[in-house]
Write a protein that binds this DNA or RNA. Structure first.
Length: 279
DNA sequence: CTTGCGACCTGTTGGC
DNA sequence: TGCCAACAGGTCGCAA
C-alpha cells in the first residue's frame, strides 16, 4: 500500500499511541511476517517498552528501550492499529499482535501477508537490513542532491519511471508518486533514464521533493485501502493529477490520460504533455 | 553491474 | 447476474 508519505503518516499517528507501552505478549497466526520467528520475537521483546518511532524510506523503525528496534515494512497492505482492550475479537487480516501491560494491544493487519518485521540492535539497521543498506537519499533538499541524482540516472538506460521506483536511487517513491512527479515534470515515463537533459533532471528532482512533502501534509493518499494508525484515510487522493485517471482529461491540456504498462506496473501519463525526447 | 520477470499472497474489480 | 482473468501504494531472487 504505502509510499513514503503514507508511511510517514502512519509513523506520526502510531507514535502518539504506543510510546511508553510495555510489551507483555507477542502472538501471530502467520509467522512468516516475523523474521526469525515468533519465539525470537517473544524472547527479545517481552519486558521492553516503545520509546519512539523513526522512518527511513518506506521502513518504520520502532524503537524500544534496551537498544532494540523493530524494522517494519508494510509492503502493499500492512496496517497498524491500537486496540484499547486486548480482549476485542481478532479481526479480519489481523496477523501479528503485541499485548501491553496496560491491557491494550498493538495489532498488525495485512491482507496479502507481504509485510515483514525484523528485530535488530538499534544502530545496526543499515548493517542488517538489505533494503536499508544501500537506500538512496530521503527526498528532501538537505539529502537529495541533483548531481548524485544525475549520476544515478546516467547509469540506467531503462525507463525513467522504473529508475524512480528503485529505492537505491531516491527513497520513498512508489507507483503513484512516480506517475505524478513525471507528469508534473512533463517527462514520458518510458524515456530512457540516461537520456534526460540537465533541465529535465533538475525539474524532476525539484518536483519529487515538492510532491512528497505536499502528500505528507495531506496525510497521504488513499486509493485502495490505506488508513493511518487511527483508521483515517489520507487526503491527497483528491490532489492526484494522473494516477487512476485513465481516459480523463489532462489537467494541463485536456488530452485523455493514457494507461500503459511499464516493467509490469500500471502507468498513467498524458501523451500530449509528456513527450519522449529520446526517440 | 544492469535488466526483466516470476514469486510472494489474497481481495477486489472490470469486462464479457 | 455471474464468472474469472487481470490488477493492486512493493520488494526480492534469479538467470541472462
Amino acid at each position: 500500500m504505502p509510499e513514503l508519505p503514507e508511511v510517514e503518516t502512519v509513523r506520526r499517528g502510531l507514535k502518539q499511541l504506543i510510546i511508553g507501552k510495555k510489551i507483555v505478549g507477542v502472538d501471530t497466526d502467520w509467522e512468516k511476517i516475523m523474521n526469525g520467528g515468533l519465539d525470537l520475537f517473544r524472547a527479545q521483546l517481552i519486558g521492553h517498552s516503545f520509546t519512539s518511532i523513526d522512518r527511513r524510506g518506506k521502513y518504520l523503525l520502532l524503537r524500544l528501550d534496551g537498544d532494540l528496534t523493530i524494522v517494519s515494512h508494510l509492503r502493499m497492505e500492512g496496517k497498524y492499529a491500537l486496540m484499547t482492550d486486548k480482549n476485542e475479537p481478532k479481526q479480519r487480516f489481523q496477523h501479528v499482535w503485541f499485548t501491553f501491560s496496560d491491557g491494550s494491544q498493538l495489532r498488525y493487519y495485512d491482507s496479502r501477508k507481504f509485510g515483514r518485521m525484523t528485530i535488530v540492535p538499534t544502530g545496526q539497521e543499515y548493517a542488517e537490513i538489505n533494503g536499508l543498506a544501500k537506500m538512496g537519499p530521503e527526498p528532501v533538499a538537505s539529502d537529495f542532491k541533483v548531481p548524485d541524482f544525475k549520476a544515478r540516472l546516467m547509469r540506467h538506460k531503462k525507463a525513467v519511471k522504473t529508475v524512480l521506483l528503485d529505492q537505491n536511487v531516491v527513497a520513498g517513491i512508489g507507483n503513484i508518486y512516480a506517475d505524478e512527479t513525471l507528469w508534473m515534470s512533463k517527462i514520458h515515463p518510458e524515456q530512457a533514464a540516461n537520456t534526460l537533459s540537465d533541465a529535465q533532471i533538475q525539474v524532476l528532482h525539484d518536483n519529487i521533493i515538492k510532491e512528497l512533502a505536499t502528500a505528507i501534509k495531506f496525510k497521504g493518499t488513499t486509493v485502495h485501502s490505506f488508513v493511518d494508525a487511527n483508521g483515517a484515510s489520507g487526503g491527497f487522493q483528491n490532489k492526484l493529477e494522473v494516477y487512476g485517471k485513465k481516459g480523463e482529461p489532462c489537467p494541463r491540456c485536456g488530452t485523455a490520460i493514457e494507461k500503459i504498462k511499464v516493467n509490469g506496473r500500471g502507468t498513467h501519463f498524458c501523451p500530449h504533455c509528456q513527450v519522449r525526447t529520446d526517440i
